[in-house]
């Protein structure tokens, strides 16, 4: 007896275990269009690969190139050197509609001008599947409903977006991304405005969705421990350079982390083999507070 077809799942193109997302020596610089100033490199050559059902966390302090990397993955920017391939196609070379059908960028917040209901918002995710002046088909509606259902947000469907907030809003935003039926989900610091409970909830949802719908998920985040708990791979960036790529246990070494974050950190490994970052340097930990320069 075969399992019921998951409506949210994009047509299976890859066999299990095949690489979906391939970043090969991709770099990016502003002002590389031949202006008088030397180009400002925001991201040096970076490489990593991700498969379906994998969750990759991109870590690094501010101005480390995380957002640039995300833009390269989304195809909004063309890499100066190297390439970013999704299923063998360069992301920056795709036309916008095709790209929107393969890659979903999940927003942190909404800035809506006029009142929009949650179901209307989610239906917007079906836009890349229509032509010109189109009306949504019953199929589109079904997909949108399913997206909400997968996130447990069906009860929010008729509420106006500006009346929903926090974790619930995050779910509706995520539902819109799901409605795009993408292969790749990208999230830029989604945990920023959420409390701890909501953060954990979000990452669990992402893991579950990656599993059920066979997504590749890339999450840019500051949360080292959450990333360690939920990510299969971690990409550590520092000042535009990719310092390390690998499983959390491989990347979370105190030398790397201290170099990157400049803080006094220790790493413990739990019984399950998952590294945990511990902060040192507070008054109770026995560390000395830095003396102020006079």
């Amino acid at each position: 007896m075969s399992a019921p077809q998951n409506v949210m799942e994009p047509p299976a193109r890859l066999a299990w275990g095949e690489v979906r997302l391939s970043v090969e020596q991709a770099s990016y610089a502003y002002g590389a269009g031949g202006e008088r100033q030397a180009p400002l490199f925001t991201l040096g050559a970076t490489s990593f690969q991700a498969r379906q059902r994998e969750l990759v966390a991109v870590l690094g302090p501010n101005a480390s190139g995380k957002s640039t990397l995300l833009r390269l993955l989304a195809g909004s920017a063309k890499p100066l050197s190297g390439r970013v391939l999704l299923d063998g196609f360069e992301t920056s070379a795709m036309d916008p509609r095709t790209r929107a059908r393969r890659i979903a960028m999940v927003q942190q917040e909404t800035s809506l001008l006029f009142p929009v209901r949650a179901w209307e918002y989610v239906l917007q995710g079906r836009h890349p599947y229509g032509h010109g002046l189109r009306f949504e088909t019953p199929e589109d509606c079904a997909i949108a409903e399913n997206a909400l259902a997968q996130l447990g947000a069906t009860h929010l469907a008729d509420r106006p977006m500006h009346e929903i907030s926090g974790g619930e809003k995050q779910r509706v935003i995520l539902a819109r991304a799901l409605a795009q039926q993408p292969l790749l989900l990208l999230l830029d610091e989604p945990t920023l405005h959420l409390d701890l409970g909501a953060q954990v909830e979000l990452l669990r949802q992402l893991r579950r969705l990656a599993e059920e719908n066979r997504y590749t998920v890339v999450v840019v985040t500051h949360e080292l421990n959450l990333a360690a708990e939920f990510a299969d791979q971690v990409v550590l960036l520092h000042r535009g350079k990719c310092l390390r790529v690998g499983a959390p246990a491989e990347v979370y070494h105190p030398e790397f982390l201290t170099q990157v974050y400049g803080a006094d950190l220790e790493v413990e490994t739990s019984s399950r083999g998952i590294p945990r970052v511990i902060v040192r340097g507070g008054p109770r930990g026995g560390g000395e507070l830095p003396r102020m320069e006079s």
């Binding site: 916008p96 890659i103 800035s111 001008l113 006029f114 918002y121 917007q124 995710g125 836009h127």
Partner: peptide, 14 residues
Amino acid sequence: LLLSGEQEAMHLGV
């Protein structure tokens, strides 16, 4: 879609 924001609209294929 444009009313949601230009970046968003672009990511949705506009």
